[in-house]
C-alpha cells in the first residue's frame, strides 16, 4: 500500500520519513554541502567554517509540563548546532500564528523564547511573522534557523562512528514524548513527569573540553527516539551498534506509561538527550565530564559499536533483539 498523499508517518522521524527524505528531498539538495543528513551543515566561511541549521516546531499543547513551543524552538535549534560541536551564535525566528491565538499566550511564549535565548547566549537576529486564518495552523508554528561556530575539527558526524567506539547517553529516554502525550490527551495518569526540553550546548562544550576529537558522533534523540538515532548512525557509518538494556538509565514514570500505552520507550521523543559515540580510551573521561554537568547527572555508557549493520539490544534476560527504525507515528494500543 503506497500512498499518493502525505501522511503523518512522513514526519515521524522513522523509516517513512527517511524514505521521503532520500527520494524527494535529496535530489534537490546541494551535491557537496547538503547531502550529509547531519543535524547542521558545515559551510565554508571566510578562512574557516560555520555551521548552519534550520528547524520547524509544531506541538500540541503549546505549553506542557517542562516547557513550551518557544523554549522547544530555541533549545532544538541550539541542539542541532551543538551536535556538530558548535557554539550557537545567531538564530532567526519566524512565527506562523493562527488567527484567534490569545495575545496572553503569545506573550508568554515569546517571553519563554527570550529567556531561553538569553540563558544560552544566542542572539535572535532576524525573523518574520505571518498570521493565517482560523483552522489553517494549529495555534502557532515556529520556524528557526541557526548559525554556529565549530569548536573543533573535524566535526562530529553521523558517518564517523567506528567499530570499538563506546555509545553514551546523558540520561533516561522518553520524558518529552510522554509528558506531551499525557498533557495533550488529558490522560488520567498521575505523574509529575516533565519534558526534558533543554539546550545541550553547555554539556557538549564540557564534553569537547574533556574528549575533543575522540568524540566521533553526536546526535540528539528527538523524534523517533533513541531507536531512530542509533539506526541513523549505524546506517550512515556502516556499523552495527549493541546496547545493553541493564545500563540504560530509566525513568520509572516513562517506563510505566509506556507499558500502559503499549509504546516502546526507545522510540519515544526526547528534547534534551544526546547520543555520543566516542573512542573507547576517552569514554571514561567524557562520561565524567557529562556527569558533572547538570544535564548529564545520569549519563551512562550504554553500548558499543560493532561490526555489522544492525542495532541490537541485549535484554535484561540475556537475550538479544533488534532495535528497528520506528515505522511511523506512535499509536497507543487497545489494552
Amino acid at each position: 500500500m503506497t500512498s499518493d498523499i502525505v501522511t503523518l508517518a512522513h514526519g515521524s522521524g522513522g523509516r517513512a520519513m527517511q524514505e521521503f527524505i532520500r527520494r524527494e528531498l535529496m535530489p534537490i539538495c546541494d551535491q557537496e554541502l547538503g547531502r550529509a543528513l547531519e543535524d547542521a551543515a558545515r559551510l565554508p566561511f571566510a578562512d574557516g567554517w560555520l555551521t548552519f541549521t534550520t528547524d520547524t516546531f509544531t506541538v500540541q499543547p503549546l505549553e506542557f509540563p517542562g516547557g513550551d513551543i518557544g523554549k522547544l524552538a530555541i533549545c532544538g535549534t541550539i541542539n542541532d548546532l551543538a551536535m556538530r560541536a558548535s557554539q550557537p551564535l545567531y538564530i532567526s525566528l519566524s512565527l506562523v500564528i493562527e488567527e484567534g491565538l490569545k495575545i496572553d499566550t503569545l506573550r508568554r511564549l515569546l517571553g519563554s523564547i527570550g529567556a531561553a535565548a538569553r540563558e544560552n547566549n544566542v542572539a535572535i537576529v532576524t525573523g518574520d511573522t505571518k498570521v493565517v486564518g482560523k483552522g489553517q495552523a494549529d495555534g502557532l508554528f515556529i520556524n528557526t534557523a541557526g548559525i554556529g561556530k565549530p569548536m573543533m575539527e573535524p566535526l562530529p558526524g553521523v558517518t564517523r562512528a567506528q567499530v570499538g567506539d563506546k555509545v553514551l547517553i546523558n540520561g533516561p529516554v522518553g520524558e518529552h514524548g510522554i509528558a506531551v502525550l499525557v498533557a495533550r490527551e488529558g490522560l488520567q495518569l498521575q505523574t509529575e513527569l516533565e519534558s526534558d526540553c533543554a539546550a545541550l550546548a553547555g554539556l557538549v562544550a564540557d564534553m569537547v573540553a574533556a574528549g575533543g576529537r575522540a568524540i566521533h558522533t553526536l546526535r540528539d534523540a528527538t523524534r523517533g527516539g533513541l531507536a531512530a538515532v542509533l539506526n541513523e548512525i549505524a546506517a550512515a557509518s556502516g556499523v552495527g551498534i549493541e546496547i545493553d538494556e541493564s545500563r540504560l538509565p530509566q525513568n520509572p514514570a516513562v517506563m510505566g506509561a509506556c507499558e500502559i500505552l503499549g509504546l516502546e520507550p526507545l522510540e519515544v521523543a526526547n528534547e534534551g538527550k544526546l547520543v555520543a559515540v566516542v573512542a573507547p580510551d576517552a569514554a571514561p573521561q567524557i562520561l565524567e565530564a557529562m556527569r558533572e554537568h547538570p544535564l548529564g547527572r545520569q549519563s551512562a555508557i550504554v553500548g558499543e559499536v560493532m561490526e555489522g549493520n544492525r542495532v541490537t539490544l541485549k535484554t535484561l534476560y540475556g537475550t538479544s533483539r533488534i532495535v528497528d527504525m520506528p515505522s511511523g507515528e506512535l499509536l497507543p494500543r487497545i489494552c
Binding site: 500500500m1 500512498s3 498523499i5 501522511t7 503523518l8 508517518a9 507515528e329 499509536l331 494500543r333 487497545i334
Partner: peptide, 21 residues
Amino acid sequence: TFGDMMRVPGSDGSLALARAA
C-alpha cells in the same frame, strides 16, 4: 478509534489515509 486501527489496510486505504485525505 484506538491507535492500533489507524494503519490497518482495508480494500481501499486505511483510517490513516482517510484522515490524511
